[in-house]
Design a protein around this nucleic acid. Structure first.
Length: 342
DNA sequence: GATGCGTGGCT
DNA sequence: TAGCCAAGCAT
């Protein structure tokens, strides 16, 4: 805690240790929003998104009243899009059923969409100063090293959670949780931990055996297969672009994208509208969580009165590449310039 | 317990 | 260049 008082990271959603000890309470809405954004996502990627979201939707009621499409568009680029759908669901439950206030207990929070064991404990501890044990990837790493736990993840998770629980104090549990995560993020880092300046150096078992950098062990990962596909970018003579909203569930669910083939070993061509399609030279490469994708891109100019089988024409002035998921933005990056020469 | 689900930065 | 990794959740 002494180390945290002197070395806490300054983060837009955080009430720092000095203010916290002076009695300043964090806004549960901002704690919740930041924690959901930070699920499997780096602080650097979250900063700007958090700023935008809180600027547009300063509280849970305004977010609950938002249009789904605008929230998805603002989330674009952050990944794991089910988070955005659950975020909206959760905001609406809190605003409509809970009087605009978040539950203050781990159990109450756990019942909300998009809030699992980590996030429930984090909000309870950070926003409401409940003595909950917060175990994220940082804490897993710190604890595995501190106690020299050799069992690979995820099998070691229950044991690491138990050990982390031994460290959870009754005083300042919220700051303690954030201290553990800051330590993992800045000192006890995955590749080359800075053991020489670590406040826990003297009591760290892995430091003693020189194995800190090798922990925690992790189960082997499965190789990622390569999938192929085709994306179709049609521009109408008035400049409008043919886009479609993807199905709610599954990959990139609810996000805007270019119509295309399915993605697999040998995708079948399926143009969304009859036209003279031009196959572009380079392809788009993108890696998802569980596969590599190579996307061929085809472009076409179409008439004002054409009737596509799929998708909706979006007027040029309403089209913002930033509202597309990254793979679709990559498609636009090569299709856009090609269309100007068509 | 295993699988599906993004992305960008770093090594 | 390719793999690793990040404040995980839902099914």
């Amino acid at each position: 805690m002494d180390w945290y008082d002197g070395h806490a990271r300054g983060l837009p959603w955080r009430v720092g240790p000095a203010d916290r000890r002076a009695g300043v309470r964090p806004d549960p809405y901002r704690v919740w929003l930041s924690e959901v954004m930070l699920q499997q996502t780096t602080v650097a990627a979250v900063r700007e998104k958090f700023r935008r979201f809180t600027e547009i939707w300063p509280d849970v009621r305004s977010l609950a009243a938002a249009e789904d499409a605008q929230v998805m568009a603002e989330w674009a680029g952050l990944g794991y899009y089910a988070r955005a759908r659950n975020l909206l669901q959760c905001a609406r439950v809190v605003a409509n059923d809970l009087g605009g206030r978040f539950p203050e207990t781990r159990e109450g929070l756990l019942a909300l969409p998009g809030i699992g064991p980590y996030t429930a404990a984090a909000i309870a501890a950070i926003a409401f100063d409940r003595p909950e044990t917060v175990v994220d990837g940082n804490v897993e790493r710190v604890v595995a090293r501190l106690f020299d736990v050799d069992t690979p993840l995820p099998k070691a998770k229950p044991e690491l959670t138990r050990l982390a629980g031994l460290l959870t104090p009754q005083a300042r549990p919220g700051d303690h949780a954030q201290a553990m995560m800051d330590l993992g993020a800045t000192i006890c880092t995955p590749r080359s931990p800075a053991c020489g300046i670590c406040p826990l150096m003297a009591s760290c078992a892995a430091r003693a055996t020189g194995r800190a950098a090798d922990l925690p062990r992790k189960a082997e990962k499965k190789p990622k297969p390569v999938r192929l596909g085709i994306a179709y970018v049609a521009r109408r003579s008035d400049g409008a672009l043919l886009l479609e909203t993807r199905p709610e569930r599954g990959l990139l669910g609810g996000m805007l994208g270019w119509p295309g083939s399915d993605w697999g070993e040998s995708p079948e061509a399926a143009p969304p509208v009859a036209a003279e399609w031009t196959v572009l030279g380079g392809d788009v490469r993108h890696t998802f969580t569980h596969f590599h994708l190579r996307l061929a891109v085809e472009v076409a100019s179409v008439d004002l009165d054409c009737r596509p089988e799929r998708g909706t024409f979006v007027p040029a002035r309403d089209f913002r590449p930033s509202s597309l998921p990254t793979v679709m933005r990559k498609v636009w990056a090569i299709a856009g310039p090609a269309l100007t020469h068509l």
